[in-house]
Design a protein around this nucleic acid. Structure first.
Length: 571
RNA sequence: UGCCCCUUAGCUCAAUUGGCAGAGCGUCUGACUCUGACUCAGAAGGUUCUAGGUUCGAUUCCUAGAGGGGCAACCA
């Protein structure tokens, strides 16, 4: 490399942001630290569906493998027979692939049980582990507290022979659950609670979704995780901050097990999102208690829920990139996610007109039996895509109730008595009369159109401030629109008064179903699952699970930015 | 009365390793516009948690303190 000015075109391809983890991996590659290429893994327990927090981890682990020419495994950390299920294994694989990633190897920690057992025996042989036969309470008491040291129990100094015999009989299934555990022999007074003779293996006579009933001694996380990484030749084991204290036992175990150049654990902050909960345990509660329709409810922050809602994997990946990776707890604004979703859809999906809350408009000076076809481009001028559709126009139309006010405030650009607006892709119309029912509710607007303004422009040069969306009443399709909003009504759903929990923070308006919205007929033959921007409203997708040829059902993916709503809110 | 981690703009993160504190999102203003969208331009927003110390120079190194978080599951 010379010091001379870079030549045109030699500009480095705008390097992606380097977080502290990527810096380390880049250093590994440059210096050949592990004697092998970068190897990561994504290690979910198959006890629930993947959510945005997992997406962050997936983008990190698979992204690093991709960027540095390394490998990334999908490993199921299935060491707890009580909570796991094939159903989750299948859902997780589908979600990872949908996000756009493919694993180099598919592994299961439950395939390592024999290897882990062999390591357990070797630890016993070295006097580094022992079988403890105290009950659960005694073990807990013997561990001490964060401020007081623990004390050795009565079985801590069993002979190697006795430990080996008991361990083998544990494996043979001779003992009941809870009668014995294998513990590492480290230090009951260790400053790090994790290191106070951590439990390695416990007895569970239970059905495991993959092992059936053939195995009854299950390794615990601390024992299984690091050794599984080491068995797979992982170089950097990425996990979240709460495992910080586990790193010490991780290092202890891979060293005692004799791995050369073992993996190193690196911790990063787990994702927290405004107005959202990202905890499998709590999400499971929402499912089980029926607050949502399932793991794939479009309001859920799960990958399956977001997919069903209409969010695309590109948006999730872009979001994960913008939030970065750091070593401190972080709560990300939901606005950042919504921005990524809009940004992804804006340049790609066609525009369409849909009236969510129909209000009839009769054009009193338009002939009764005429239907015109108006040409409507499907993309705005700044989206480099072509295409258009025909929109029928007639005497009776629908516009959105939000676009009319009988007594509007200043700066209301839409329809009001005596005011003129432009119909998108169509004529200028002026509101003359307001028809009300007995209850005093507005049920119809009587307007006149200016026949000279079919182009949307007035020949005399007069300007209108507002352009509103509309559909022709006779040709419009009736459809159902599900307007989804945040699942929780406060930024931190756990910040509820004493005695309540996050359930109390649920947003009662998180789903508003509009049974009879009116959409332009051009969408009739589009495949179900198509995404659109409903102009001036938001992004929507017809839902495969609910739509029928007779009646389309649309999910709102995300609303458009709405500076008028902000103006109104400000008063 | 323990151990460990964290603290830079409203939010998320940078700062080439001790050298003029920046970016994206958000907010506000303006331009453009047949979407109050998009796009573009601009602005506001900082005692870098506090107090000392080292240094010509500290966001960066040291000490103490404050605030936040994690660890005492036979869960992961």
């Amino acid at each position: 490399m010379s010091d001379s000015a870079p030549e045109a075109g030699s500009e480095p391809t705008s390097a992606p942001r380097r977080d502290f983890i990527r810096e380390l991996v880049a250093d590994d590659v440059a210096n050949g630290h592990f004697g092998r290429g970068p190897a990561t893994r994504f290690p979910p327990e198959p006890n629930g569906f993947l959510h945005m927090g997992h997406a962050k981890s997936i983008c990190l682990n698979f992204g690093i493998a991709r960027e540095f020419g390394g490998t990334c495994n999908l490993r199921f950390d299935d060491t707890n027979p009580a909570t796991e299920d094939v159903r989750y294994v299948e859902a997780i694989q589908r979600d990872v692939q949908w996000l756009g990633f493919q694993w180099d190897n598919l592994f299961f920690a439950s395939d390592y049980f024999e290897k882990l057992y062999d390591i357990a025996e070797s630890l016993v042989l070295k006097g580094k582990a022992y079988v403890d036969s105290q009950n659960e309470e005694a073990i807990r008491a013997g561990r001490g507290t964060v401020t007081t040291a623990g004390t050795p129990g009565p079985y801590r100094d069993r002979t190697v022979e006795e430990n080996l015999d008991l361990l083998r009989r544990m494996r043979a299934g001779e003992f009941a659950d809870g009668t014995h555990v294998l513990r590492a022999k480290i230090d009951l007074a260790h400053a790090n609670m994790i290191m106070r003779d951590p439990l390695l293996i416990r007895i569970r006579h239970a059905h495991h979704y993959r092992r059936g009933n053939d195995w009854c001694i299950y390794p615990l996380y601390d024992f299984a995780h690091g050794l599984s990484d080491a068995i797979e030749g992982i170089t950097r084991s990425l996990c979240t901050l709460e495992f910080k204290d586990s790193r010490e036992i991780y290092d202890w175990l891979v060293k005692e097990a004799g791995f050369e150049q073992p993996p190193t654990q690196i911790e990063f902050a787990r994702l927290e999102l405004d107005y959202t909960i990202l905890s499998k345990r709590k999400l499971l509660r929402l499912v089980n208690e029926g607050h949502v329709t399932g793991w794939d409810d479009p309001r859920m922050p799960t990958i399956a829920g977001l997919r069903r809602r209409g969010v695309r994997p590109e948006a999730i990946r872009e979001f994960c990139e913008t939030i970065g990776v750091a070593r401190k707890d972080a709560r990300v604004e939901i606005a950042a996610f919504e921005h990524a979703v809009r940004n992804d859809l804006n340049s790609d999906v066609p525009r369409v007109l849909c009236v969510l809350n129909p209000l009839k408009v009769v054009l009193t000076n338009y002939p009764e039996d005429v239907v015109e076809d108006l040409d409507a481009p499907s993309f705005p001028h700044d989206v480099p895509k072509t295409g258009s559709r025909r929109m029928p126009f007639s005497r009776e139309l629908y516009v959105d109730r939000d676009d009319f006010m009988e007594d509007p405030p200043k700066k209301f650009y839409r329809l009001a008595p005596g005011k003129e607006v432009r119909l998108r892709f169509g004529y200028l119309i002026t509101c003359n009369d307001v028809v009300k029912n007995d209850a005093g509710e507005v049920i119809e607007l009587r307007c006149t159109y200016d026949p000279a303004t079919r182009s949307g422009q007035a020949p005399d040069g007069r300007k209108v401030q507002g352009t509103i969306h509309w559909v022709s009443a006779a040709q419009a399709l009736s459809c159902e629109v599900r307007v989804y909003d945040r699942l929780f009504s406060q930024p931190d759903p756990d910040a509820v008064p004493e005695g309540q929990d996050f359930i109390a923070a649920l947003n009662p308006q998180s789903l508003v179903v509009i049974a009879d919205a009116k959409i332009e007929p051009s969408v009739a033959n589009d495949p179900i699952g198509s995404r659109y921007q409903f102009e001036r409203t938001g992004y929507f997708m017809s839902e495969v699970e609910s739509s029928t040829p007779e009646k389309l059902v649309f999910n709102r993916i995300v609303g458009l930015r709405d500076s008028w709503a902000k103006e109104v809110k400000r008063g």
